[in-house]
Computed example of a mutant assay.
Amino acid sequence: MTHQLPPLPYEMNALEPHITANTLSFHYGKHHQAYVTNLNNLLKDHPLTAAPLEEVIMKSAGKSDMMGIFNNAAQVWNHTFYWHCMKSNGGGMPSDSFKAKLEATFGSFEKFCEEFKQAAVTQFGSGWAWLVADKEGSLKILKTGNADLPMAHGVTALLTCDVWEHAYYLDFQNRRPDYVDTFLKHLINWDFVESQLPQ
Rank of each mutant, 00 (worst) to 15 (best):
P7H: 06
P7I: 00
N13H: 15
E16A: 14
E16W: 07
T20K: 03
A21T: 04
A21M: 09
L24P: 04
L24D: 04
H32I: 01
H32R: 02
V36Q: 05
V36E: 08
V36I: 09
N40W: 10
N40R: 04
L48Y: 07
T49Y: 14
T49S: 11
A51Q: 10
P52G: 06
E55M: 02
E55I: 00
I57F: 02
M58R: 14
S60V: 03
S60R: 01
A61I: 02
K63H: 10
S64I: 11
S64Y: 08
G68H: 13
N71K: 08
N71Q: 12
V76L: 15
W77K: 06
W77Y: 15
N78Y: 10
N78F: 07
N78D: 10
H79Q: 11
H84Y: 12
C85S: 15
C85Q: 09
C85A: 14
C85T: 13
M86F: 05
M86V: 12
K87S: 02
K87A: 05
K87F: 05
G92Q: 11
D96E: 13
S97V: 11
F98V: 05
F98G: 04
K99Y: 01
K99G: 01
A100L: 11
L102K: 04
T105H: 08
F106G: 03
S108I: 00
E110R: 11
C113W: 03
E115A: 03
E115G: 01
A119I: 02
V121M: 07
V121Y: 08
T122S: 14
F124H: 10
G125I: 00
G125C: 03
W128T: 05
W130T: 00
V132D: 05
A133Y: 06
D134H: 12
K135Y: 08
K135M: 12
K135V: 12
K135H: 10
S138D: 15
S138E: 15
L139E: 11
I141L: 01
K143V: 01
T144V: 10
A147S: 15
L149A: 08
L149P: 00
M151G: 01
M151T: 07
M151E: 09
H153P: 00
H153N: 10
G154M: 09
G154E: 06
V155L: 02
T156F: 09
A157I: 04
A157Y: 01
L158A: 08
T160L: 07
V163C: 06
W164A: 07
W164R: 00
E165F: 12
A167F: 02
A167Y: 01
A167V: 04
A167M: 06
Y168F: 15
Y169C: 00
Q173L: 11
Q173Y: 11
N174Q: 15
P177M: 03
P177F: 02
D178G: 02
Y179L: 04
L184S: 06
K185S: 13
H186I: 03
I188L: 05
N189W: 15
W190R: 06
D191W: 04
F192H: 14
V193M: 06
L197S: 05
Q199G: 09
Q199R: 09
